[in-house]
Amino acid sequence: MGLLTVSGSPHIHGGLSVKKLMWGVVIAMMPAMLASFYYFGMGAIKVTLVAVVSAMLFEYLITKFILKKEPQLHDGSAAITGLLLAFNVPSNLPIWMIVVGALVAIGIAKMSFGGLGKNPFNPALVGRVFLLISFPVQMTSWPVVDKVFPLGLDAITGPTPLGIVKEGLDNGEPMSDLMSQIPSYTQMFIGESGGSLGEVSALLLLLGGIFMLLRKIITWHIPVSFLGSVIIFSGILWLIDPNAYVNPMFHLITGGMMMGVFFMATDMVTSPMTPKGQLIFGTGVGIITIIIRVWGAFPEGVSFAILIMNAVVPHLNSLFKPKRFGKEASNG
């Protein structure tokens, strides 16, 4: 008999690991990813592959040669960052831009803070926003969804529904005209709207989100408060003037809303750690998203809103503590 092992209690572990959590997220993203392949074709496959491979490569190189540590690629966090980045860019983006985006996401937003778990901002979003600000033209020329599997790389480009509505309203076009220019709500919900890879199908993103909720990878607090505040805030605006503001349903199913709700805002590392904090965080993201969408310069505001709220997470963590046991004794 060898030596006995000794350590402090507890002596058993529930078997949950970072790896399981991360690959769970990847599985949840699969349906939406496949849908994007279907709608955008080779371009989408190329973008996804490049983003994932370069994100993992940068993480490997940086841990190995700069931080001089053992690379932890198998935990899947770099793959998720790559996937999320791919979800956030149009399928006709030049390859070198994606590589730059992955470098910014992994190198600047993640590893410079110390790697997994230490980054204050969602790496994929930092990468996306960096690309959006640096290369606005390429980042906003969205290929139009063509149901025929387009093998060529030069798809026709056009604005997203959000872009159409935003521009139209700014130019004073009547709401009814604009509504006729965009696909129907069912089409948009199932996935026939142009945009980034991950914006294509709200339905499949929703499915992935429900999968993560059931697997307890995420909790309900952030999605519910995010969606709730979007519906309430945009609903109030719509009730005030239906001609100047689009209805809440439109906000919910267009753009990166579903992706933001389930995959970006719920990122464990960059979201608050207490239920109360998570509710405030979700509400804040929802309100800022609508503010940017309605009054901002960009048609889409989810990624900016999440990054802004990421910045206040440390404060939310220290302001909203969980309720302690026995804090207010309730006798009876």
Partner: peptide
């Protein structure tokens, strides 16, 4: 044996 220690991912 315990599992290897990784960074906290703030999953709460």
């Amino acid at each position: 044996k315990r599992m290897p220690v990784l960074n906290c991912i703030r999953c709460s």
